[in-house]
């Protein structure tokens, strides 16, 4: 565990989580959630959990972003909050 690397990623995690909940455009919220998932994937690779890291990269960042974009495509893109 590299402490400085950890700290930078954790700060960026909080920032991306807050931004993806703040933006009113749901498509950009889904994209920023993908960025969040890739940051978490980096953190896990750094913690020595490589199997969890590549599962998160494929399933968390890939598939769940595609699910969200498909839902937004079939419904509405704007959010009230």
């Amino acid at each position: 565990m590299i402490v400085s690397f950890d700290l930078v990623i954790l700060v960026f995690l909080i920032i991306t989580a807050a931004i993806s909940l703040r933006v009113r455009d749901l498509l950009s919220a889904a994209m920023i959630l993908g960025v969040y998932s890739f940051l978490i994937c980096l953190l896990w690779a750094e913690m020595g959990a490589v199997d969890v890291a590549f599962t998160e990269a494929a399933v968390g960042a890939g598939v769940s972003t595609v699910f969200m974009i498909a839902t937004i495509y079939h419904t509405r893109r704007r959010s009230s909050d």
């Binding site: 565990m1 989580a17 993806s20 909940l21 749901l26 919220a29 889904a30 959630l33 969040y36 998932s37 978490i40 953190l43 896990w44 913690m47 020595g48 959990a49 969890v52 968390g60 769940s64 969200m68 839902t71 937004i72 419904t75 959010s79 009230s80 909050d81």
Partner: peptide, 28 residues
């Protein structure tokens, strides 16, 4: 607090990943 259902699901994803992060960091 969020009113939009997709926003609620984004919150759920963040909640889940935070718990998973906690458990993975136990093994370090």
């Amino acid at each position: 607090t969020k009113k939009n259902l997709v926003k609620k699901l984004i919150g759920m994803t963040i909640f889940q990943t935070a718990i998973i992060l906690f458990y993975v960091s136990i093994g370090v």
